[in-house]
Computed example of a mutant assay.
Amino acid sequence: MSLHGLLIAAPRSGGGKTTVTLGLMRAFRKRGLRVAGVKSGPDYIDPAFHRAALGRDSFNLDSWAMDAALLGGLAGRAAQGANLLLAEGSMGLFDGVPAALGRSGASADVAAALGLPVLLVLDASGQAQTAGAIAKG
């Protein structure tokens, strides 16, 4: 499945994902786009923030608890009538549990299942070349 949108991720929790996601949601909405939101993982707080920013419900997507068909179905439902789907990651981009490919609960699994590019939020304070190495992988 491929949707128009992106997944906002970071190397760690507390890395600025929610702030960037909410800022993008409001900025795109102010420009007249119909934006939908989803959250990677079993989180109930961030979807409430998404709803406040967007005026529409946000869904949770969890690659550990949901297979690819369910992820795609829920994302499609969330994105119905929208021009853009913004997915907020959880923890670090690749953080999950040992599991079969695509089923670890990591945000990277959700991005891959939905065909979403990843916007990596990096707090580069106190860094120089290290930030480039992290961004490059």
Rank of each mutant, 00 (worst) to 15 (best):
10 A>P: 13
93 L>A: 09
20 V>C: 04
94 F>M: 10
127 Q>Y: 10
112 A>H: 10
105 G>W: 04
31 R>C: 11
73 G>L: 05
22 L>T: 10
38 V>H: 02
4 H>K: 12
5 G>A: 05
9 A>E: 04
92 G>I: 08
36 A>R: 06
125 S>C: 14
64 W>A: 05
106 A>D: 11
81 G>T: 13
7 L>M: 08
95 D>K: 07
13 S>F: 02
71 L>K: 07
112 A>N: 12
24 L>P: 08
49 F>D: 09
5 G>H: 02
112 A>Y: 04
136 K>R: 15
48 A>S: 07
17 K>L: 03
137 G>I: 13
29 R>N: 07
70 L>W: 00
106 A>N: 10
21 T>W: 02
28 F>H: 15
60 N>K: 01
115 G>H: 01
37 G>V: 11
113 A>T: 03
118 V>C: 03
30 K>W: 05
54 L>G: 14
129 Q>V: 12
117 P>V: 11
6 L>R: 11
124 A>C: 13
132 G>A: 12
118 V>P: 10
80 Q>R: 12
33 L>R: 15
43 D>K: 01
123 D>S: 11
104 S>F: 06
18 T>E: 01
63 S>M: 05
128 A>L: 04
107 S>I: 01
112 A>M: 08
5 G>T: 08
45 I>G: 08
85 L>T: 08
20 V>F: 01
125 S>L: 09
41 G>V: 03
83 N>V: 08
104 S>A: 10
117 P>F: 03
126 G>T: 11
34 R>E: 15
96 G>F: 03
